[in-house]
Design a protein around this nucleic acid. Structure first.
Lengths: 171, 171
DNA sequence: AGGAGTGATGTCATCAACTGACATCACTAA
DNA sequence: TTAGTGATGTCAGTTGATGACATCACTCCT
């Protein structure tokens, strides 16, 4: 990420990244599927965490309530230290279409994961898909806003505020 | 798309595509930014159409009503003939992560476009972003369902049905 | 008619992302 | 000690992508 921030994604070669890490380019590709993936290590963990939270929501919770639990659980992942890193990472990603694409597919994977977990709770396909999409939308909007907030503001609070905005929308 | 369907995206070289089209690879890259883009020509037109519909919605329409108008306007784009093509295209895209990424960024671009158009109507940022995300989610879910419907079912009807599902969700 | 643009294409050279095959080396378990 | 295992290096090759330059058709102006 240092290199991407310094010289830009396009201006950085895999050989340079590998050098900085003290390995060869071939080894880089053994750890990361491609040049983009290096910025997304750990994103599976977030998905696992959120899917787990959704599955463990009370059986009688509505689809949106279960999704809400999942989104709120993501707050465990992001504290003030993470946020600094997240901010720099977000800047790099926003500046590079190819990285933005990768970020989007991670979010899509999250959506799929949440949808499946909802279906396993007996929720009908279209409802599950929409609830999941809505949940991920809330996550994204909240996350983006959280990055602009001053230190000390908890991610969970931003999520709750965003959820309130959402319910105002469709009311 | 023929080649992607026959041999898969990875199994197809740009040289082969160019050959089939009777040009050189260099010329291919003058028409399309990269190997993926060839499947997404025309997606800007859809965005232009939907953004226009949103901007032209009555000034006193709520954000969601304006977004609804935009989503419904997309139905002009897709008739029964288009659907056949869309189905084959969707199959290729679903089978190829790299193409899926590109599809997602097109949807993101659409979201951004709708968000901006909402902001120009005086809608506040977070509300605009959520309404746009929701609208695109509806579009996606409806589109996917439409592809599975028998001939003769109008896309607009599927959209309306999906919108109904959505309003039931947050109720 | 006869240039002078202009735009689309071809040709060539080059870079950089990836991948497969094989060798090496450290470390572990029998 | 030895066989096995996993991580890494080396090397060669394919393919996506881009810049520089030449060519050719077509339009516009005189």
């Amino acid at each position: 990420m240092e290199l991407y921030a310094e010289r830009g994604y396009d201006g950085t070669t895999v050989a340079e990244i590998a050098d900085r890490a003290g390995v060869t380019a071939r080894t880089f590709f053994r750890h990361f599927a491609d040049k983009r993936e290096v910025l997304f290590a750990g994103s599976e963990q977030l998905e696992v965490l959120m899917v787990k939270a959704l599955s463990e929501a009370p059986a009688d919770a509505t689809p949106m309530a279960a999704v809400t639990a999942a989104v709120l659980s993501s707050a465990e992942f992001f504290d003030d230290i993470r946020r600094d890193y997240s901010r720099r990472r977000a800047a790099v990603i926003q500046a590079t279409p190819e990285l933005l694409e990768r970020e989007l597919i991670k979010m899509a994977s999250l959506t799929t994961g949440l949808t499946k977990a909802l279906r396993e709770r007996g929720v009908e396909q279209d409802v599950a898909a929409l609830a999941a999409e809505t949940g991920v939308a809330v996550f994204r909007v909240a996350f983006e806003r959280w990055l602009t907030e001053p230190d000390g503001v908890a991610f969970a609070d931003v999520i709750r505020s965003t959820l309130k905005t959402l319910s105002g929308l469709t009311a």
